[in-house]
Design a protein around this nucleic acid. Sequence first.
DNA 1: ATGGATGCAAAGTATTTGCAACCTG
DNA 2: CAGGTTGCAAATACTTTGCATCCAT
Lengths: 152, 152
Amino acid sequence: MKAPNDIMRRVRDEARRRGVRWTTQRQAIVETFISADEHITVEDLHHRVRAIDRTISAATVYRTVNMLVEMGVATKRHFGSGSATFECEVNKEHHDHLVCTSCGKIIEFHNDAIEDLQVTVAREHGFVISYHRMELYGSCVDCQKQTGAAEA
Amino acid sequence: MKAPNDIMRRVRDEARRRGVRWTTQRQAIVETFISADEHITVEDLHHRVRAIDRTISAATVYRTVNMLVEMGVATKRHFGSGSATFECEVNKEHHDHLVCTSCGKIIEFHNDAIEDLQVTVAREHGFVISYHRMELYGSCVDCQKQTGAAEA
DNA sequence: ATGGATGCAAAGTATTTGCAACCTG
DNA sequence: CAGGTTGCAAATACTTTGCATCCAT
C-alpha cells in the first residue's frame, strides 16, 4: 500500500507526461479520490470535493475521473443500476467483489485458489490473462434475515 | 438446453402464478428474447420485436425485461458503458467469458471448481450467491503470435 | 501568449413513469 | 367488469459537450 503522496506524485507525473495540465481542481479531485479508498460515485466525489473548493463543477469531476481511468489509475464499474462507481487501482491490492443485490453493500475479497484456477482455465484455451473482473451477486447476512421474515 | 416452448411455458406459468397478465406484447417480447440466445440490449430487442408487432413501445420492452429479471428468468448486465444488456438464464448453461483484448474474441467457459470456490468464499462472508459475473481478459493464441512479431 | 481546462447550461443517452385508453382474466 | 397493461410523452437520472473565459506552462 503506497502512501497517498506517492500516488499523487505518480498521477501528476503521468499527467505531465501526457501533456495534461495540473490544475488546482485536478489536485483537489485526485487528492479526494485517493483518500476515499472505496468505491465512489461521481456525485459523492463531487460532494466531498466541494468541501475543498466550492466552485468545482460536476462536469470537471466527470472529466477528471475519466482521465484517471484513461491513465489506468482508476477503474469504472457498474454495480447493478444507478451511477457508475470509480475506484483507485493504485493504492490497493487486487481484489474482487461481493455485491448484495438487496442493499447494495459491497465486500471486497481475494482468493488465490480462484485466481490460480482462472489462469489454468485460460491457459487451457490458449489465453494469457492480463486482468480479470469477478463479481458475485447475492444476499448479505442482514438482507437474508429481512427477506426471510418479510416475504409474503 | 430446453426447447423454447418449454421456456415460454415456464415463464408464462410463473407470470400467472404472480397474477401477471399474459398479453400479446409480453408473448412477443419474451418469445423474441428467448430466441436471441445472447446478450441483448433493450434497443435491440425492441427492434426485433417490432418485426412481430410494429406498435410495441420501448417502454413495454423495458417493463417486460425488468419483469423477467424480477422473475429470475433474465439477467441484466452492464458491459462497460452504454446500455445494459439482458440475457436469458433459462435456455443456456451458465458460463463465464474469456475476452481477448486484442481482437475482441470471446470464448465461453465453465469451471466447476471455480464456481464451488465462489460459493465458499461468499459463504465465508455470510453471502448467499444468486449469480455472478466473471470475465477474464487477456491475449488469445492468435494474438499472442502477432504481438510477438508486430509490437512497435 | 497559447491552447488546454473550467463552469455553466444545454444536449445526449438510458430508463422510468403519469395517464387515459385498452384488454386479460 | 376491474384493474393490470399499454403507448405516448414527459420526466428522471446520469453523463457528455459547446462555448466563452480562465489559467498553467
